[in-house]
Design a binder for these strands. Structure first.
Lengths: 346, 346
DNA sequence: TCCTCCTGCTCACTCGATTTAACATCGCCG
DNA sequence: CGGCGATGTTAAATCGAGTGAGCAGGAGGA
């Protein structure tokens, strides 16, 4: 029982053009070495056109073992909104090479992840992207170790895989550079830090790298960091509290580096409540460049997570087998200059 | 030239179990009508287990014309962040029925959309979801009219397709209800309106429906709307300007219904600048429930776009052929009560 | 003893493509 | 005039499964 309604196949085209299926295949797949006469070629192309022939990729894949398909499995996307850009970038690179993208999310559940990967392997994807929503280490499971894979926004410790991550350390340096250029020296404080919490006693990758960059750039300029308020990055509330206690102190900072825009939002709220004005009394620079940054008044200078470029690069590397030497690719984080930095007040 | 490394196939299992390939197929696909002895069944299952057999879905699909795959094509996702939830919901419903999801974005380019849909059709997807990031009308192209399709967050004028949209009108009623319950009567103003702009001279769907709901609920209570500030919804700036002129007037409103959270954010900023406090001097209720709503101080009461549920429902309907009568499904928008509403000051 | 019926399994075809090897036909050269 | 190479085309196998028809062998009945 062939389950009903079929599309136009090569056999139909062959019949229409008065040649064999083989010939049709040769013409349509453009094999130059097979010497088909111009007339036959024309008849076939004409028939294909007329009948609206479209190849059945499923059948093609079965024979060629190539599906023109890549799978992207992330841990979670809804929580960090900018992930959309990452997927978009991945999609863009896939389409450029005529691939379609399977997208799925494990929700951090290993069993769910296993199933998803298995589903993609069963469907013979050409390659896999393992994505994390905030940079961290990741160990691909045994089932995919022999499979073309790229890690997106995560690092593997074994060095077996190609990884694509943002260049957080350089971003840290850039943040400091902006403040130094504006004339800030000793009053620079950090809100956020490495994000040491119960769940992450060593801090998070982005935090550690940003801090490293910040400290390096400051010491290169011979400036001492006035202090770091370690706190959770998850909501403006934490930034507010940190800033409140800073601004109420007897030697408030002249500039604050916030580890993300949410914290910066909290700092803005605190400054407002303390009757201080950004950037006149307090310069603020931040990371991530979420939409929030452009909505704040004054608009917030922030160093962007290059989500689009991350996704793009990952898939692009995945589909260029020649460039798939295991390596860590660090994508630059662009500075978005806005109005939250000014010279320190004297 | 069979291009190299192959996985375990049914033929391998058959050899291992000492039966024919046919028998293996019958056992593994669980056909009860074929009378296979218990011993044979056990040997086959054992062999499959031992060899780590996994069916090749590509081959299966070729024969059965079922790919266990659905395609989701949206216009754009990166701009409106909450789309992530929508995709997640869609994914969830797909997985429940053992389907995987192709995700793609047309970027509002009809030619790109055509290509994406064609790519999915060529890959024999079982069904398509056409998604829009903000509710609007959509006319599926000729190429997919005979294909199982569901419209997600958009409506078709022809009534040929199943559509899933948020119940905006009811949300409008709910917003008013919250204010009436708090004791507001004549001082209720709307910021945003139908969002009449150059690009949308008739306003947008969400705007018109919300306004309809708002007006209906007010008139049902015998209350007159104090006024509507029609404006662009895209950034807090517009909300700020609208609110500024309202609050500086001689009869400022006691409550404002904002057509989305960005506008509400602008209203907060304006209230702050005018020395007014939310909710003591001004109650605010809003729509969408973006993250922003919970970050604001005081936290903003907002009526959520049920993105997750929208995506979930769309795919769920798509994969239940019995329920695929063309119809419009309106998904309720949940109220998130927070701290931005109080009784009017006398 | 022959016929039928059931049980348990297999043969051979099919899905829609790719790909290898071979087969006509023709002209040309020795 | 026979063999050979070039040219244009096709038959048949293959990818990995699903599936209708059929075939042994034993039990049971007439």
């Amino acid at each position: 029982m062939p389950p009903s309604p079929s599309r136009v196949t090569q056999a139909d085209v062959a019949r229409h053009a008065g040649v064999s299926r083989t010939t049709v295949s040769f013409v349509l797949s453009g094999r130059e070495d097979m010497r088909i006469s111009i007339e036959a070629r024309q008849r076939i192309l004409g028939a294909a056109q007329e009948l609206g022939y479209r190849p059945n990729l499923t059948a093609q894949s079965l024979r060629t073992r190539k599906t023109y398909t890549v799978g992207l499995v992330s841990d979670r996307v809804a929580s960090t909104h900018y992930a959309g850009e990452m997927i978009q970038g991945a999609l863009e690179a896939a389409l450029e090479r005529d691939h379609l993208l399977y997208f799925a999310e494990s929700g951090d559940d290993p069993e769910a992840e296993r199933k998803l990967l298995q589903g993609m392997l069963d469907r013979q994807v050409d390659g896999l992207v393992h994505a994390a929503m905030s940079t961290r280490t990741y160990r691909p499971s045994e089932q995919v170790r022999s499979y073309p894979s790229v890690l997106l926004n995560c690092l593997d410790e074994t060095g077996e895989f190609t990884c694509v991550v943002p260049d957080e350390e350089e971003a840290g340096r850039q943040a400091v550079k902006l403040l130094l250029e504006a004339g800030h020296r000793d009053g620079v404080h950090v809100v956020g830090g490495s994000q040491v919490t119960r769940r992450s006693p060593d801090g998070v990758y982005a935090g550690r790298e940003r801090m490293r960059g910040i400290e390096e750039a400051l010491s290169a300029a011979g400036v001492r960091l006035s202090g770091v308020s370690e706190c959770d990055w998850s909501s403006p509330e934490h930034g507010y509290r940190a800033a409140r206690s800073l601004l109420d102190s007897e030697a408030p900072p002249t500039a604050v580096v916030c580890c993300n825009d949410r914290l910066a939002f909290g700092v803005y709220q605190a400054a407002g409540d303390c009757g201080m004005s950004v950037p006149r009394d307090l310069s603020v620079v931040s990371f991530d460049d979420s939409e929030l940054a452009s909505w704040l008044r004054p608009a917030l200078t922030s160093i962007a997570l290059p989500h689009h470029e991350l996704g793009r690069t990952a898939v692009s590397l995945l589909l260029s087998p020649d460039e798939r030497e295991p390596a860590v690719h660090r994508i630059p984080m662009p500075v978005r200059r806005r109005e939250s930095i000014a010279a320190p007040r004297r």
